[in-house]
Amino acid sequence: MNPSFWNNKNVFVTGHTGFKGAWLCLWLHQLGANVTGYALSPPTEPNLFHLCQIDQFMHSIHGDIRNRDHLQNAIEHADPDIIIHMAAQPLVRASYQHPVETYEINVMGTIHLLEAVRTLDRNRKNRVKVIINVTTDKCYENKEWSWGYRENDPLGGYDPYSNSKACSELVTSSYRQSFFHPNQFDDHGVSLISARSGNVIGGGDWAPDRLVPDCIRSLLKHESIKIRNPFAIRPWQHVLEPLAGYLLLAQSAYANGPKFAQSWNFGPSDHDARSVEWIAQYLCSQWGPDAAYEVEGEVGPHEAKFLKLDCSRAKDELGWVPRWSLEIALDKILEWTQAYRSNQDVRAICYKQIQDYQS
């Protein structure tokens, strides 16, 4: 990745108040980009967005991705070179409770974004050159294979969240073929991309019903960690891993749009696809002698038992490779948590970890 590329680039980020979006805005700011964010208020309290006072160095717009006119107006005024679409209802369990809302946000929200770009005045001096729709590894039809899913494997999704993200992928593919076809790039000038990442973890995530945030909450309260599905295996990765992939992908597509206008997987190395119980054990071992976990007996809604990504395309064509092992990722989360616990400047910790990752 070329840091100088981002200097003074106009970047529009949806979902910037979420955990992943906040880390992305911190990184973009460090790289010198002009960032505009569009999102609802942060979904949790506490949250990384407020803790790092991210609205002090970017233009933050309070908006609902389901409000097409408001979104289009925001994009027109931001005049972005690059759009990274991360606004979503991101939780599996919440999708069982609110399926209609999940589809409205994850499917129609994507359509509203792509329609906004499609109908922009193409005579503007600057125009959108790259759109990255961030989805999930759960968009694949999960057959519980022991090998990783490739970008051309069938899409599916058992639960409303996973299925809505598969639908978002199909919408992206349709708009790419219908309105932003790589073969007509000279006419429209837009590289439309989708990016699929594994289970993202990192400091400052307070989302409910996610393993690592649930573990951290329990550790901070001196309570026993409660886990479900202890043998479920996921492709865990630090949040900076896929974000590095998105930044590298946007930079590459900006220079050579047609080549990169496709779908991309960003996941950890095979040996970092570990079980839920392994994660709980490691966090407890690093936290201290009083930390413990237990397996809940309650049966919850369906969750996949095994899921892994094949990232050969990103490695071969982008030169992207995961840098941090799962152990390092978890250690970085504990470093961030201890800083938060002792009332240190967590924005400084975030910047330090970004620098550590880059070096």
Rank of each mutant, 00 (worst) to 15 (best):
338 Q>G: 07
277 E>D: 04
284 C>D: 03
303 E>N: 11
206 W>V: 02
308 K>C: 14
9 K>S: 02
194 S>L: 07
278 W>T: 08
70 H>V: 12
100 V>N: 09
230 P>Y: 11
160 P>Q: 05
173 S>K: 15
2 N>R: 05
24 L>E: 01
56 Q>P: 06
306 F>Q: 08
169 E>S: 07
138 K>A: 11
253 A>V: 12
322 P>K: 09
244 A>T: 15
242 P>Q: 03
193 I>D: 06
200 V>T: 05
130 V>H: 08
126 N>H: 15
118 R>V: 13
95 S>V: 01
88 A>W: 10
2 N>P: 10
291 A>G: 06
314 A>G: 13
229 N>Q: 12
282 Y>L: 11
290 D>C: 07
267 G>C: 08
20 K>W: 04
108 M>H: 12
190 V>A: 14
283 L>P: 12
66 R>A: 15
76 E>G: 12
29 H>T: 11
21 G>T: 03
92 V>P: 05
151 E>K: 11
106 N>A: 08
293 Y>V: 05
26 L>C: 04
12 F>L: 07
188 H>V: 11
16 H>Q: 08
124 R>S: 14
273 A>S: 15
231 F>V: 10
192 L>N: 14
279 I>Q: 07
286 Q>I: 03
48 L>F: 01
158 Y>W: 14
321 V>H: 12
268 P>F: 05
344 Q>L: 04
338 Q>F: 14
357 Y>K: 03
197 S>T: 13
50 H>T: 09
311 C>L: 08
90 P>Q: 06
190 V>C: 10
205 D>T: 04
275 S>E: 04
301 P>R: 06
39 A>L: 05
198 G>C: 10
187 D>R: 13
102 T>L: 06
359 S>E: 13
85 H>V: 12
340 Y>A: 15
247 L>D: 06
88 A>L: 06
287 W>F: 00
234 R>D: 06
